[in-house]
Amino acid sequence: MKPISFSYYRPKSLAEALDILAQEEEAKVIAGGQSLVPLMNFRLSRPKTLVDINGLRELAAVEADGGVLRIGALVRHQELLAHPLVVQHFPALAAAAAEIGHWAIRTRGTIGGSLVHADPAAELPAATVAHRGVLVLTSAHGERRVDADAFFYGYLMTDIAPDELLTAVELPLPSGVRYGFAEHARRPGDFALAGAFVEVAEAGHAGAVTWFGVGGRPDRQEMELSPDAASRGRQFAAALAELDGPEDEVEARYRRQLAAVAAEQAYQRAIASGRGN
């Protein structure tokens, strides 16, 4: 359980980080390292070069600007879940961040790391998809923006190129919609077995559900959400039937069941969040 040898860089600026990524073969960015280091300890991840971006404080800001909340890639889960702007505009995201791992994981793990790692059972990729976020990918050649929905390919696979750094994620400030979140894990702090973000319009029944833990990536499905619980249950079941689940039949059935239960709870929370205001 010891990593292989690697070269270590601790760039002092974003430009320096991007230069290193452009020049070094098999380089890997380390931010919080809470997913990466276990994989390195197992020697499943074997980067030749590690680029430590923890010193780039410019990536650690949360700011609202022009109808968008921009969350720097280095924002740690523990900061995210308590940040006033996040709590105000994205309570479901704050709630989800609170479910990540344990305290000692949340104090170090970052939103950027979680998004790039792209574990299908992780909260933040799903949260980003649910809130129709945009990922800002930067390289020595410039910047590109990718819709969250297009960023996640599948199990631990994303659109990021080897020379790119995820610098921020931008979430449009919600207007006329509310969000709810729920998940089910075997033990608190474990990766979710299944979970859901539910979006409901303040007027009418338009909505969307973003599922995670069932398929290989978070899936957002728009749907008219019936006000009747039984019909909603059937809607969720039908929507989940379209997702590719785990191979094992019992496990797949179980994940879908949990996801449906989570979606209903998330729906109730979304509705309740409106009452509070």
Partner: peptide, 13 residues
Amino acid sequence: TSLMDYLLPAATD
């Protein structure tokens, strides 16, 4: 082969 798969009871269990 890890404590992520072999689950031990935590304080919340």
